[in-house]
Each structure stands twice: as structure tokens, then as C-alpha cells.
């Protein structure tokens, strides 16, 4: 498809021109648990710099889908083609070694519970540095410098660098998990309810942080949540899932303000107003 951008402004950066090729192209992704459907025939493209929200109630298949996309679960059918530096590759059929290499370089995964994404017995600096060391960083001073830089970016005081995450609040743990994931400059970040376990006030700070990082790093994000307010503020596009299938997708505000599917209408109208 041709990019149909007619307005060129000297101030605008290159990265927001329509990319020629999606970063992630998902086709017919299906995962069954015996007779039961985890997710079925999910297809979509994710473009560089886009934030895609996936919403649906518990059991709708959104977490299964995320696990299949991130390579944590092997799907029964379908492909997940990622635009690697060497060209598009189906991550479902690539070797596990390659997939895991991807997972610690170009990809990142932010868990709902920071305990699942952090090493609780390792200092904050060690947590942030691990991905760097995993890809071959061997200079302690440089690793520590990068860790300090990232702690600052996620608003954790520098003097906490040698503290273990156990001593951190829930919001700090979640920010540390984000720093640990983004330190290697990934291009695609999977997030599973990243604001789920947090107080509302802490959520806002995290959302602002995520928006800034997405913008500055040009990240593409797939974020699973059941919180429609979160996707409205964070996601460019939205997919609504029910019974393992995508029932509706489109621009986030369009899906939320002009929902067409009965389930989406129910979902949107069920949100409590504050």
C-alpha cells in the first residue's frame, strides 16, 4: 500500500511517515486447550511506533493471545511474522534459541506482577543490567552507568541502585521492570496489565511514563488490559476480544465512541463513570 501522506513539514521527524512494512504481521493465530478455544484465527498488523490495545473480559483469550505472540506459548496454527534486522521471520517456526535471543534484544515483556518480571534477589542495578550482560556487555562501569541512566528515566532515585526490589513499593517495582526491559532498546514491547495491581495515583504516573517512552523510543507496544481508560490514554488502536476471537478492531477512540459489535457496546456502556 502506498503511504498517502501529502503534508511534509520540515519539523516532522522521519519515523512517523507510514512504514512500508509492518513490524509484526499476525495471520490466523489459533491456540486450543483440548476442546476449548484459547484464541482463534487472530490476524492483524502492527506498524512501527504503534500502540495496540487488546481488551476483553477475563477468559476472552487476550492473555493466551499475548503469550502466543510473545513466544511463551506455542500456537496450534498461524504465523507471527516479525520484521527482524535480517528481514521478516515467522517467530512461531524459528528455533527456540533464535526466539529467546529476540526476546532479550528486540522484544520486551512487562508482566502484570513485577515479581514475575524481576529478579527479587538481585539489586535494582543488576536487574537493569542483566539484559545488557546477556547481550555481551562486559564493562562494569558502563553497565552501571546505563543502569543509573535508566533508573533516572523511570524516576527511581540513583541511591536505590544497590537496593533489592523487595524494598520497593509496587509502583517502583513496576517502573524497575520497565527499565529492565527497555534498557536494550527493544522495538516491540508486550505488556500484560502493566497497571493492574497499582493504586490509581500510581497508575497515572506510570501511564505518563509509558507514553513518554513510547514517543521518545518509537516503541511499538501490544498491551493487554481490561481497563478501557488505560487503553484510551495509551493505545492508538484497539482490538476487542470475546470467546477467543477478535470481534472488533479499529482506532481506539473510534471503537470506544462508535462501537459496532454488541459485545463492545456492552463493554463500553458498562464502564462506571467517575
Amino acid at each position: 500500500m502506498n503511504a498517502r501522506i501529502f503534508y511534509e513539514n520540515s519539523e516532522t521527524s522521519q519515523e512517523f511517515r507510514c512504514a512500508e512494512r509492518p513490524l509484526l504481521a499476525v495471520r490466523g493465530l489459533t491456540k486450543r486447550y483440548g476442546e476449548r478455544i484459547g484464541c482463534a484465527e487472530v490476524s492483524f498488523n502492527l506498524w512501527p511506533g504503534e500502540v495496540l490495545g487488546i481488551v476483553g473480559e477475563s477468559g476472552s483469550g487476550k492473555s493466551t493471545l499475548l503469550s502466543c505472540l510473545a513466544g511463551h506459548l506455542a500456537p496450534d496454527e498461524g504465523e507471527v511474522v516479525f520484521a527482524t534486522a535480517e528481514g521478516p521471520r515467522d517467530t512461531v517456526t524459528m528455533s527456540e534459541a533464535e526466539r529467546r535471543r529476540l526476546a532479550r534484544t528486540d522484544w520486551a515483556f512487562v508482566h502484570q506482577n513485577p515479581r514475575d518480571g524481576l529478579r527479587m534477589g538481585v539489586s535494582a542495578g543488576g536487574n537493569v543490567g542483566e539484559r545488557l550482560m546477556a547481550v555481551g556487555a562486559r564493562n562494569y562501569g558502563a553497565i552501571r552507568g546505563r543502569a543509573l541512566d535508566w533508573l533516572e528515566r523511570v524516576e527511581i532515585a540513583a541511591d536505590r541502585i544497590d537496593d533489592r526490589p523487595r524494598a520497593f513499593s509496587g509502583g517502583m517495582q513496576q517502573r524497575l521492570q520497565i527499565a529492565r526491559n527497555l534498557v536494550t532498546g527493544p522495538r516491540l514491547v508486550f505488556m500484560d496489565e502493566p497497571t493492574g495491581g497499582l493504586d490509581v495515583s500510581v497508575q497515572a504516573r506510570l501511564l505518563d511514563l509509558l507514553r513518554g517512552l513510547v514517543r521518545e523510543m518509537g516503541l511499538s507496544v501490544i498491551i493487554v488490559t481490561h481497563d478501557l481508560a488505560v487503553v484510551r490514554l495509551l493505545a492508538d488502536r484497539l482490538m476487542v476480544m470475546k470467546g477467543g476471537r477478535v470481534v472488533e478492531q479499529g482506532l481506539t477512540d473510534q471503537v470506544l465512541d462508535d462501537p459496532r459489535h454488541a459485545y463492545t457496546q456492552l463493554l463500553v456502556s458498562s464502564v462506571l463513570q467517575v
Binding site: 500500500m1 501522506i5 492508538d236 488502536r237 479499529g250 482506532l251 473510534q254
Partner: peptide
Amino acid sequence: DLDVAQAEPREIIVLRRR
């Protein structure tokens, strides 16, 4: 020269940004 009624979400995103 973008037809919003037919456009892909990503094209509308770029349209809105610029």
C-alpha cells in the same frame, strides 16, 4: 488526499498527528 471513510487506522493516526 486521504479518504478518512476508507483509511486504515494507521493512516488516520498519521493524519491526526500532522
